[in-house]
């Protein structure tokens, strides 16, 4: 499904602030895989998602989706296969547009946008039907501007828009990090439901280790631009936060020792 080979990203190349954000990442994600990604700040989690979605090009490496090389495909064309949800609810929707207008933009992902009316009566009915199944009451607010919705509602709408056209891959970038705990839990259960229903391959970045272990069938840990740990299936189910931390600190310790050796 998603195949990443030797992917590297360098920011501000050639300057004093040169930053090797990703080093030689190799990752294969199968259909219906739900992968959670954790790691400390600056580990390269968001950079990885941005490279997959085409926000910027990699310095080296190759990205394939369903056997198709998308490395040089522009961001808006990759949107055909990729649904995205961002950290801030403000990022994934357009505030000055109404709810149905936001949806109308999402349904045309990968299609030509012409001079036909964007929100037709038929489309409005379809939106209403499908939003009703979501059970958040949004079906009654189709003609309200999205700026009037709460952060949780906007994030729910973004997830809904991301999967509306049934993409191949869903990218969630700490999509509950800026919500209050209660709303975050609601969005997580909505995420679970939607991913389970649509069975699409999902990558979810999170800061929360518990969440990372609870959700999905595979967890990877990133540190300084590399994948340092990858657990899935039965091993993951048995894993606790304590195990994860131990693993993490062992890897860290080893690195520290190596650094010390360099200094000596």
């Amino acid at each position: 499904m998603l195949k990443i080979r030797h992917l590297s990203k360098i920011f501000l190349r050639g300057s004093v602030n040169e930053n090797l954000a990703l080093r030689n990442i190799n990752l294969t994600v199968a259909h219906a895989d739900f992968v959670t990604i954790i790691g400390s700040n600056g580990a390269g989690k968001t950079t990885l998602l941005n490279l997959i979605s085409g926000v910027y090009p990699p310095e080296e490496g190759r990205i394939e989706i369903n056997g198709m090389d998308v490395t040089n495909l522009p961001e808006h064309k990759r949107a055909n296969f990729i649904g995205r949800v961002f950290q801030s609810p403000l990022q994934g929707t357009a505030s000055s547009l109404t709810l149905e207008e936001n949806l109308a933009i999402a349904v045309l992902r990968g299609k030509k946008r012409g001079l036909r009316l964007a929100v037709t009566r038929k489309k409005r009915e379809e939106f209403r039907e499908r939003l009703r199944a979501l059970g958040l009451g949004l079906e009654n607010r189709l003609q309200e501007r999205v700026g009037l919705l709460s952060g949780g509602q906007r994030q729910a709408l973004t997830i809904f828009m991301a999967v509306f056209t049934k993409p191949e891959l869903l990218l969630l970038d700490e999509h509950t990090a800026s919500l209050d705990p209660k709303t975050a839990r609601r969005i997580i259960s909505l995420t679970k439901k939607i991913v389970a229903e649509s069975r699409l391959a999902t990558l979810m970045v999170t800061h929360n280790m518990e969440q990372a272990l609870e959700l999905g069938n595979r967890t990877i840990v990133m540190e300084e631009g590399e994948i340092i740990f990858d657990v899935s299936g039965e091993d993951k189910k048995k894993m606790t936060v304590k195990d994860l931390l131990e693993n993490f600190s062992q890897i860290k310790k080893r690195e520290l020792v190596e650094d010390k050796m360099l200094l000596v």
Partner: peptide, 17 residues
């Protein structure tokens, strides 16, 4: 609508194709 979305939130517009 695509033009309005671009002016409102370019990041969203690109993510929505």
């Amino acid at each position: 609508l695509a033009i309005r979305a671009t002016g409102d939130n370019e990041e969203m517009a690109r993510a929505e194709g």
